[in-house]
Design a protein around this nucleic acid. Structure first.
Length: 383
RNA sequence: GUGGCUAUAGUUCAACGGCAGAACGGCGGAUUGUGGAUCCGCUCAUGAGAGUUCGAUUCUCUCUAGUCACC
């Protein structure tokens, strides 16, 4: 086994079926990573649950864990794997997205970004070196580069220098992580770094940036700054134009995306890694994914519905509980309601990517995708 | 039993004798590298009866129900 090796097993058009090797195990791609920002999947979901629902990679956030409990504490506890009792791969997001999502609370300079903590308001400085130090302390399997994620509607005159700065930040991330991986007291000396492509919806900026960061020979590359306000068509166009300029033998990670349809479309265009808050956040608000589309379990029509969320679903929730009961739990704001919904949605996403892998193995991705998309037209085939 | 107070949306409360509002709830929608959050639509009411008045949720009386105090 070789850490960071991506092996393409088969291809169908731009779509890839592969394996990505890490010190915490082999990741089968395409993969959907389950988002647990603060080192926990929201909704009282345990790491045992994650094993049951087929989670391959857990994703946590640098900024959030730095603010609480503090990455030094996580390091003292033996790193994030030991701390949260999860021995499979963990990817940590760099905190770069928080530059964007907490825009009201920050100031960007060449050295890095000054944040105001959303917990207690105190000032936090984070740049490439700080982000790498924190992620090294967390000892995740894959660290993400510290980038800036400009809004998709941002003007070229803003995006251009922002992307150039993101490139300089990437060089600093790489140098810092190499240094940290050499250190005696580093928990995971094999920590991998993924670079991030930016450029809003300007194909030429994204292409130039992709070429530039490809020279760094990183083990993986992400596409960031999509699904932040632009149309689906613009997002797909950016993927089609940018991915050919990223290394063909490295995995591509589309950050923060997306709906089941987004995932099918992106796999077709060459994406291998995904993450999204949709399945977990929507679950907490009763929006559940099924093969016949998304349903809102709070709708009155489910009040006396004895069916499981999706008949035939293999998730722990559907083995046992009815829509009517789960709806009652959600109405009563019982934590169990959220939990059961999150388990279903994450299982659905994990199962979706498993089916995608099986279809690619058989060379039947195109027909699988068409069938899946037709089935998921909202409500059209509801049981 | 006597006296006081109250009665407006599913709930808690607003409204000078002149178009009955809010919050929460209910119904539906949004949400893409998560602040268990937030946002957006829609729906729903003057306890019953009589009187004064051009006009009553508002003033008067009776009834009903609740509530407090006193016996």
């Amino acid at each position: 086994m070789s850490n960071g090796t991506f092996t393409i097993l088969t291809k169908e058009g731009a779509a890839k079926r592969g394996t990505f090797e890490t010190v915490h195990g082999t990741i089968q791609t395409p993969v959907f990573m389950n988002v647990g920002t603060v080192g926990a999947i929201k909704g009282a979901v345990s790491t045992e649950d994650l094993e049951r629902i087929g989670t391959q990679v857990e994703l946590s956030n640098t900024y959030h864990l730095h603010v609480r409990p503090g990455d030094e504490i996580v390091k003292q506890m033996g790193g994030l794997h030991k701390f949260m009792s999860w021995n499979r791969p963990i990817l940590t997001d760099s905190g770069g997205f928080q530059v964007f999502s907490l825009a009201g609370l920050r100031r960007i300079k060449e050295e890095g970004v000054t944040f105001q903590s959303h917990i207690d308001g105190h000032k936090i400085f984070m740049g490439p070196e700080e982000s790498m130090q924190i992620q090294s302390n967390l000892a995740s399997t894959i660290a993400m580069a510290f980038d800036e994620c400009p809004p998709s509607k941002a003007d070229r005159s803003y995006v251009m220098p922002s992307v150039e700065r993101t490139t300089r930040w990437l060089l600093r991330c790489k140098a810092k992580l190499e240094e940290l991986n050499e250190r005696e007291d580093t928990i995971n000396k094999n920590q991998l770094l993924f670079g991030i492509n930016q450029g809003a919806v300007y194909a030429d900026i994204r292409i130039e940036h992709a070429k530039r960061i490809s020279e760094l020979n990183l083990p993986g590359y992400a596409i960031g700054g999509l699904a932040v306000g632009e149309t689906h068509e613009e997002m797909y166009e950016m993927l089609e134009k940018t991915i050919p300029y990223l290394p063909s033998d490295k995995p591509v990670y589309l950050m923060g995306v997306g709906t089941p349809a987004n995932i099918l479309e992106a796999v077709e265009r060459g994406v291998d890694f995904f993450d999204c808050v949709y399945p977990s956040r929507n679950a907490r608000h009763a929006h559940l994914y099924t093969n016949f589309g998304k349903i809102n379990l709070l709708n009155a029509r489910y009040e006396k519905d004895e069916n499981p969320i999706e008949p035939g679903c293999g998730c722990p929730t559907c083995q046992r509980y009815s829509r009517a009961y789960i709806r009652h739990l959600l109405k009563a704001k019982e934590m169990l309601g959220m939990r059961l919904c999150v388990l279903h949605n994450l299982y659905f996403y994990n199962k979706l990517t498993e089916e995608i892998r099986e279809a690619l193995d058989k060379g039947e991705f195109a027909s699988y995708k068409a069938r899946k998309l037709a089935g998921m037209q909202d409500g059209a085939n509801e049981i």
